[in-house]
């Protein structure tokens, strides 16, 4: 099963907290990382380096991305999502997010514009993976307390 089949993102509280903590640590820049799932359930968060080092952009460092993909394989986990923060705007994909979306997994956005932080998840559906435009479809997020 790949992340593409997941209809809802369910985060154990501890992993949601870890993701938000990484986003808070990254301020004023955006923060990013990857989400591991197993049978559709979120099982791990990989806090990662923002190679763009910017308050309005993020990019994974490909070398670190490769190491995480290898770790996913070794543990038998799926790539379940990509997360990043919006430090001053709502948790909704920006035009840049839509244009740059390449993986077919949910894109999770953590907004730090309000207290507490808001987590939302989206699919960015494109005609082909390299297309510049796409449709944004929100999917439910549940934090399991």
């Amino acid at each position: 099963m790949t992340g593409a089949n997941v209809l809802e993102m369910r985060f154990p509280q501890e992993l949601a907290d870890r993701m938000i903590a990484h986003c808070l640590d990254g301020r004023p820049d955006e923060a990013c990382g990857l989400i591991a799932t197993e049978d559709g359930a979120v099982v791990h968060i990989y806090p990662m380096f923002n190679a763009s080092a910017s308050p309005v952009r993020y990019a994974l460092d490909p070398q670190e991305q490769l190491a995480v993909y290898q770790d996913l394989d070794e543990r038998g986990w799926d790539l379940g999502g990509v997360f990043h923060s919006h430090t001053r705007t709502e948790a909704y994909p920006s035009p840049t997010d839509v244009r740059e979306a390449r993986e077919e997994v949910p894109y999770v956005i953590v907004s730090l514009a309000t207290e507490p932080a808001v987590i939302r998840a989206f699919r960015i559906v494109k005609e082909s993976w390299s297309a510049e435009t796409g449709e944004v479809e929100e999917m439910p997020v549940e934090v399991l307390g």
Binding site: E30, C32, L34, S52, V56, R57, Y58, A59, L60, P62, Q65, L66, Y69, V82, H84, P93, S94, P95, T96, D97, E100, A101, R102, E103, Y107, W129
Partner: peptide
């Protein structure tokens, strides 16, 4: 050999 899509946004 690994193929990797870039993961980025704003």
């Amino acid at each position: 050999v690994a193929l990797l899509p870039s993961v980025a946004g704003g």
